[in-house]
Design a protein around this nucleic acid. Structure first.
Lengths: 125, 125
DNA sequence: ATGGGTGCAAATTGTTTGCATTTTA
DNA sequence: TAAAATGCAAACAATTTGCACCCAT
């Protein structure tokens, strides 16, 4: 990918993320983008997700035991919650902060990932 | 799987875990088990891993962005470290403890997962 | 008109499953 | 010797890639 050109499909995908309120899977992105650009192919979704991550527009959200999700970058440092029931993933603010006391001697930490699991408000009845 | 019978292959797989000092991938298990029982098939590895998890002998270790690993169960609550370089995963003791302050109102937390990323001692030169 | 982008289908990777055969109890 | 376990290969699901064609610049 040398130069990144503007296309209807790419615009549609970016717009999907601007309107999303939680991290989305490639299939969810496809379903939403298809409303804006009917017939968009799944390979196009994957290719654009990858290039949007490379250009810094999106970030990959990795949840343990699940396929990758994507969200707009530029949000403050935060973590995620996955509902045990509906499996949707939500952004949650906050961070326990310094995890140095968990770092064993000889190891050097560059980043961390925290995911909470449980029941989301929608599924809590 | 009704009754679980003892087989040479299953014994080999269990022995691999008794000697492992970190979580292993199915392929690593196969490589080690193959030394104890040459020719063991990958399907047998997967089937036994699944049943050993069901019987409580093993636990699945899910690292964000990586395929599932397995380790013996019965260890104290702990978390994991993945090396950015060699990608090996290590157990690390400790836990920041109460993460309630990260739980947004309306959500109910049942468990959490913490993974530290960085450089392991082996790769630190 | 040229080089990047798209859609489709084939290829990959990690994991599971169907089935004929072997092994355990 | 009946039921469970194995090995192999085919089936799957998620993601990537090759290629002919299309569309921005």
């Amino acid at each position: 990918m040398f130069l990144v050109r503007k296309t209807k499909q790419r615009d549609a995908i970016q717009q999907v993320f601007e309107e999303a309120e939680r991290p989305l899977s490639p299939d969810e992105v496809r379903a939403e983008a298809d409303k804006l650009f009917p017939g968009i192919g799944i390979a196009t979704i994957y290719r654009n997700l990858k290039s949007l991550v490379e250009t810094g527009h999106l970030k990959v959200v990795e949840i343990p035991g699940a396929a990758a999700l994507y969200e707009v970058s530029g949000l403050a440092h935060h973590h995620h919650f996955q509902c045990d029931d509906c499996e949707k993933v939500y952004d949650i603010p906050g961070c326990p902060g310094n995890l140095d006391h968990m770092t064993p001697p000889g190891f050097q930490v560059s980043s961390h990932s925290i995911t909470l699991f449980g029941t989301c408000p929608d599924c809590k009845e």
